[in-house]
């Protein structure tokens, strides 16, 4: 069940420590990174840490791969490219992913993060992940 793997992902110390939440409906998933003071990278703007936003995008990519098809283990990142489009303000961040292709070994994902307005993304991620799909005849 993808629910189990989603729970493994969200319960991982780093992910729960960051405070990531998922709104998961069927094969669709929206991530939320609720604002917290310790996510700020530069207190003078103040802007969220680019690394926190990048990590959040990576976690939403992972979660979206888990709900896209039954997997045995957590996907592992091969490479990622993050574009920072706007400074992420001191506010909640949301993200949704599009799985461009999820094959037998590798998946290609694009994620977009926004704050107030969906049409004004703050960052995007494009990445490849190693995946281990469940075999059709393996016990669920």
């Amino acid at each position: 069940m993808s629910e189990t793997l989603i729970k493994t992902l969200l319960d991982a110390p780093y992910v729960s420590g960051l405070g990531v939440e998922f709104d998961h409906r069927g094969d669709e998933l929206t991530g939320c990174l609720p604002f917290r003071d310790d996510l700020v990278g530069n207190p003078l703007i103040p802007a969220l840490h680019g690394g926190a936003v990048g990590a959040f995008l990576e976690i939403v990519a992972t979660g979206s791969l888990i709900v896209a098809q039954p997997l045995d283990r957590l996907p592992k990142p091969i490479d990622i490219a993050i574009d920072y489009l706007r400074p992420a303000r001191a506010a909640d961040v949301f993200a949704r992913a599009q799985v461009a292709r999820s094959g037998r070994r590798v998946a290609n994902v694009r994620v977009e993060a926004w704050q107030g307005r969906r049409g004004a993304p703050v960052a995007t991620l494009h990445g490849h992940f190693l995946i281990t799909p469940k075999r059709e005849n393996s016990p669920a």
Binding site: D11, A12, P13, Y14, V15, G51, A55, L74, P77, I82
Partner: peptide
């Protein structure tokens, strides 16, 4: 320990390396 991404392996999450 609180930066681990996969409790099975104890490996630090890629996100922390990204940051």
């Amino acid at each position: 320990e609180d930066l681990v991404g996969d409790p099975e392996t104890g490996v630090i999450h890629g996100g922390a390396v990204t940051a």
